[in-house]
Amino acid sequence: KQVQVGDEKYTFDTPEEARKFAEKVAKEKNLKVTEKNGNFHVE
């Protein structure tokens, strides 16, 4: 599963790991997490 933050992409083995990372980054940057096709976008 992938997490996209701006132009950066991070790959994780499980959706749970990806979601945790996305939520942590979103909180730090005051952004929101959206899920698209099983991948997460922080925007």
Rank of each mutant, 00 (worst) to 15 (best):
K1W: 15
K1R: 14
K1F: 15
Q2S: 13
Q2C: 15
Q2H: 13
V3H: 01
V3G: 01
Q4I: 15
Q4H: 15
Q4F: 15
Q4W: 15
G6K: 04
G6L: 09
G6A: 06
G6P: 01
G6R: 05
D7T: 13
D7N: 13
D7I: 09
E8M: 14
E8V: 14
E8P: 01
K9P: 04
K9C: 15
Y10H: 06
Y10A: 02
Y10P: 01
T11K: 07
T11P: 03
T11H: 11
T11F: 14
T11D: 08
F12Q: 00
F12Y: 02
D13E: 11
D13Y: 06
D13S: 13
T14G: 05
T14W: 03
E16G: 07
E16C: 11
E16W: 09
E16Y: 08
E16V: 05
E17I: 05
E17D: 09
E17G: 05
E17L: 08
A18I: 00
A18G: 01
R19L: 08
R19V: 04
R19C: 08
R19T: 02
K20Q: 12
K20L: 13
K20A: 14
K20D: 10
K20S: 12
F21K: 00
F21A: 00
F21G: 00
A22Y: 04
A22E: 00
E23K: 05
E23Y: 14
E23L: 09
E23D: 09
E23N: 09
K24I: 07
V25A: 06
V25I: 13
V25Y: 10
V25W: 08
V25K: 06
V25Q: 06
A26S: 06
A26L: 03
A26Q: 02
A26D: 02
K27S: 11
K27D: 07
K27L: 12
K27C: 12
K27G: 08
E28I: 09
E28R: 07
E28S: 08
K29E: 08
K29M: 14
K29G: 11
N30L: 06
L31W: 14
L31C: 12
L31P: 02
L31G: 13
L31R: 05
L31M: 15
K32V: 13
K32E: 07
K32T: 12
K32D: 06
K32G: 07
V33E: 03
V33W: 08
T34F: 14
E35P: 03
E35A: 06
K36S: 10
K36T: 09
N37Q: 06
N37I: 02
G38C: 07
G38H: 03
G38K: 02
N39P: 02
N39M: 15
N39W: 14
N39C: 12
N39Y: 12
N39S: 12
H41N: 07
H41M: 11
H41E: 08
V42M: 06
V42E: 02
V42W: 03
V42P: 03
E43T: 12
E43H: 12
E43K: 07
E43F: 14
E43V: 13
E43D: 11
